[in-house]
């Protein structure tokens, strides 16, 4: 059985959060599913902007909050579905949006506020928790239960703060 790999690090600015996201994005491939957790203003959407950059999304401006529209789609190396469970009442509503198809091999699904619908998240999801640790400091915990994904992330330079 795989042991979870947990990486904890701190970013000190929006730019550092974007850069971390970019490294995470470089390590991802079709079929990966990301669960993002963190309160209002923690920087979830900006981490996704970085991830999209790492996945080769050209128009980074188009990466914005899906709270109201529920799902944004971007085209990078693979298709990216950026979802938001903030307004959802249950895991069933996430499934109704077509979430299972979005987790298929050809695309990457990223779910903000995933802690609101944990039962809908695949078992091998990459869980990323962002905590406010100061005015611009963010403590970011990345928990991975998939050994190959952990290896890809390590190869992409995602590791503890140096």
């Amino acid at each position: 059985m795989n042991r979870d790999t947990t990486i904890t690090l701190t970013t000190h600015s929006v730019e550092e959060t974007l850069a971390l996201g970019e490294r995470i994005g470089r390590g991802l491939t079709g079929g990966d599913c990301l669960a993002l957790v963190g309160q209002l203003g923690a920087g979830k959407t900006y981490l996704v902007k970085g991830i999209a950059r790492g996945l080769g999304v050209k128009n980074e401006r188009s990466v914005n909050s899906p709270t109201f529209v529920l799902v944004n789609e971007y085209n990078g190396r693979v298709a990216i579905h950026h979802l938001d469970a903030y307004r959802l009442g249950s895991a069933d509503e996430l499934i109704d949006l077509g979430f299972e198809e979005m987790c298929a091999d050809a695309s990457i699904a990223i779910v903000e506020w995933a802690d609101r619908v944990p039962e809908a998240m695949p078992a091998n999801s990459l869980w990323i928790r962002i905590e406010v640790a100061g005015e611009t400091d963010r403590r970011i915990e990345i928990r991975c239960s998939d050994a190959t994904l952990a290896k890809r992330l390590a190869d992409a330079g995602v590791g503890p703060s140096r």
Binding site: L40, T45, Y46, K49, E60, R61, V63, N64, T67, F68
Partner: peptide, 18 residues
């Protein structure tokens, strides 16, 4: 032009939540 992160209406809703 367009928002690069949150929409204005979303900001109102999230401030109400805060």
């Amino acid at each position: 032009g367009a928002t690069i992160d949150d929409a204005a209406g979303e900001a109102f809703d999230k401030v109400a939540a805060i």
